[in-house]
Amino acid sequence: MATRNIGRETSGVFIISATPFTETGAVDAASTDRLVDFYLGHGVTGMTILGILGEANKLTPEEARGFAAQVLARVDGRVPVIVGASAAGLDNLRSFAHFAMDQGAAGIMVAPTPGPSVEDRVRGYFHQLCEALGPDVPVCLQDFPQTTGVPISAATILTLTRECPQIVMLKHEDCPGLAKLSAVRTGSGTADTPRISILCGNGGLYLPQELSRGADGAMTGFAYPEMLVEVVRAHRAGEVDRAEDVFDAYLPILRYEQQPGYGLAVRKAVLRHRGAIACARTRSPGPKLGPIDEAELMRLIARTEERVKGLPTGA
């Protein structure tokens, strides 16, 4: 079972896990275990599964449950695991969320449903969600309007923090979003608004600045989790220049991973190269690297790993 549920003080690096597939497109059970071991071996604080990177929308309900159960069993309580549970209907969402919690999840991640960008509608949805889930299921609110098409203001996030005790964490991915992050951080943990944990996504592209703005860590899927771990550790220790030096060493490949509509294939190719998964396949419709892409990526990997060796201490 999970070591603990996520809460308002949760911090560190919650790696967003890919979902590995075989060459025929089936969920790869052997690579799933290997990937969990890879992430844990690089010192992550927690894991998040069945998010956008995890291609959750391309899995059948049975596959999603099977994958969640296998990951949670493999982790075996060593770190908390958040399970993506966004769904069109609250009944299906509640059923899957309760299944995940019963299997040992530490909380669930939910994004707002597509629809008009009206703050009252977003508030109403999360009120219904929390009522449906019950008080014992911690919620990470995913704010990713570039994908969901639903922007959420800092004021609404703070209102939900006050009104819905289950919402204990924000996955911050709005872009540009640094001012918004600052507004949420300074507006929470006050006399009238509880503190909310803030972990940041977007591949980690702005991680040093987000940490300086008060973020508690990262929740993203960069294929070099050791970079995220070291940047967060160094920054929290007051070694801000060290954190930025490590980040800068990985920046070219991190940026390459963040290409819209293509980055998932890159990330899986890096994970395959590093021995974490056996196959880099994405489910159709999905991106695929060609021979020129592969050669370009291998050159970036080689240059990145050589640059990292030149850091004062290895990351």
Rank of each mutant, 00 (worst) to 15 (best):
M47L: 15
A68K: 05
L40D: 06
F67H: 06
T45S: 15
T60H: 13
V71T: 12
H42V: 10
L72F: 06
H42Y: 15
I82E: 01
E62R: 04
G46N: 14
A56E: 04
K58N: 04
L50E: 07
V79F: 03
G66K: 08
A85Q: 00
K58F: 09
T48M: 05
F38I: 14
L53D: 14
R74M: 13
K58L: 09
L59D: 13
A87I: 03
G89P: 06
L59F: 15
R78D: 15
A88R: 00
P61Q: 07
V36P: 01
R65P: 01
A85L: 00
G54R: 00
L53I: 15
V81I: 10
R34Q: 06
G89S: 06
T45E: 08
G54P: 00
A73F: 05
H42N: 13
D76V: 02
F67W: 05
A68V: 08
H42M: 15
G89D: 10
Q70V: 08
V36L: 04
M47D: 11
G66V: 07
G41I: 15
A56T: 10
E55T: 05
D37I: 10
A85C: 00
I49D: 05
L35H: 14
R74I: 10
A64P: 11
V71R: 09
G51M: 10
S86Y: 08
D33R: 04
V71L: 14
G77C: 14
L50G: 03
M47G: 09
G77W: 11
L59N: 09
G66R: 07
F38K: 15
G84N: 04
A64L: 10
P80Y: 00
V36W: 02
G41L: 15
T48W: 02
L59S: 13
V75R: 01
A69N: 08
I49N: 08
T48S: 05
E62S: 04
E63F: 15
D37K: 09
P80R: 03
G66M: 09
G43H: 01
G77N: 13
A68I: 02
G41S: 15
G66N: 07
A88N: 00
G77Y: 11
D76S: 02
A87H: 06
A68H: 02
Q70P: 01
A64S: 14
G66D: 10
Y39D: 05
P61K: 09
V75M: 04
L72C: 12
V36E: 01
F67C: 04
T60C: 12
T45L: 07
L72S: 14
V44H: 13
L59K: 12
P61E: 13
S86N: 07
I49W: 07
K58R: 08
L40Q: 06
R34L: 10
G43T: 01
F38S: 12
F67R: 03
